[in-house]
Nucleic acid binder design. Structure first.
Lengths: 217, 217
DNA sequence: TACTATTTTTAGACTTATCTAAATTTATTT
DNA sequence: AAATAAATTTAGATAAGTCTAAAAATAGTA
């Protein structure tokens, strides 16, 4: 059984290393966890002994298979709890993180699986991030028009379904490119337009435009 | 904000001191928390400084108003989570304790109140123990026939609704007296009879008898 | 390449919560 | 009341996780 601190380190390394399981620097971990590099070095040594990370002095850290499994499992719990808070307890999607941060450390596999069932095996959390299943597999994502995303959800621009020059020029003006991260902030019932955050910046987009931007979660 | 260890001490003292807020011995706390008396002394000193307990060397410990409030709040969370686990996640009433023991330490008043609402403001947990409301008040309990208790619930015998000698004699044989603690283990559909635990011992009781034993939760 | 800046690690200290063993106080028994 | 037993506290040690300050290694630059 792992401690809370260990779990937070594994989660941080997972987050920083991305899908390629890249090596992560000591400093990066320190920044992510708002702690000092020396503390990170200490903990990394402990995690190395436990077989959760690969570590070479001065050369960064990466997750072992075992460490990866644990990290994914914590992410799974975090995101399932977020769904619970929003769908069942009527939290707003932007106020669940801190509570989920605590709930993700509760230890009971029965709890996780029953919660998953209770929620209907959701594939994405309220922020649009994918939820791994109990085997640690992430859902395969398909592209969909931006207009179909629900409030709070986010994704990456992977294409457009119309390629006339004036449309593409307009996207350029909105600073929307392939790979841009978009999150839906608000949907206006009145005209079906939506408010989105693009690379951190808020903008308004008409339904006509939103229909033609393809998103992958 | 209090640590997990502090919360567990306050909860233990609350449990041991009962409604009269009696003074609790160092050893009793050590037994309850499966720790050593010396550890208890250390922690009690810390809790005294924080104003959560009254403590005189060699003379036991009792909760202050502040300490009592915290303890009741933890009990509230514990029992609400137990209701959630049984009612929503289909846990059995006898397998929720360890998980609730973890969940009770999650810090978010919004979470507690929304959970309470989601559950419909339950008054008793799956073991029949009363759930304090958000002001820390316990539900006033009324007596009801034993037959009305649902599985897992428990209460104290506070009377009988029939006082013929042979009935009372029979109760005596079952070792049921005023004040006996009874918990419903199982209900047999076939003949409405019930299996109960009386002062820790399992027995079978006919529906006729169960109708005439009055219980307070 | 050599110097400087940055990153990372080490060494030693601190806090929290725990423990064992010994000392002290209170309770019980003869 | 004195002797013994039990409960409680103190003193000192330990483990986890963190910190600061200094040392060592790596990276960047003139």
């Amino acid at each position: 059984m792992n401690t809370l601190a260990e779990e937070n380190y594994l989660k941080a390394i997972f987050k920083l290393s991305g899908k390629q399981k890249a090596s992560v620097s000591t400093n990066a971990i320190a920044v992510e966890l708002e702690t000092k590099a020396s503390s990170v070095t200490d903990m990394i040594k402990k995690l190395t002994e436990k077989g959760f990370v690969n570590y070479q002095k001065y050369n960064g850290t990466s997750l072992t298979k075992k460490g990866h499994e644990i990290a994914v499992h914590i992410v799974r719990k975090h995101r399932l709890w977020e769904v619970f808070l929003v769908k069942k307890l009527n939290f707003q999607w932007d106020e669940v993180h801190d509570v989920a941060e605590q709930l993700e450390h509760i230890k009971s596999s029965k709890l996780v699986e029953h919660l998953d069932t209770f929620l209907g095996f959701p594939q994405y959390d309220p922020h649009g991030d994918p939820i791994p299943n109990k085997n640690g597999e992430f859902p395969k994502s398909f592209s969909a028009p931006l207009i179909d995303l629900t409030i709070g959800n986010k994704g990456k621009v992977v294409g457009v379904s119309q390629d006339n020059p004036s449309f593409l020029k307009y996207l350029d003006k909105l600073e929307i490119q392939l790979g841009s991260k978009i999150q839906v902030i608000e949907k206006v019932d009145f005209d079906q337009s939506i408010e989105v955050k693009i690379n951190g910046k808020a903008t308004h987009i008409s339904s006509e435009v939103a229909k033609n931007i393809l998103i992958k979660q």
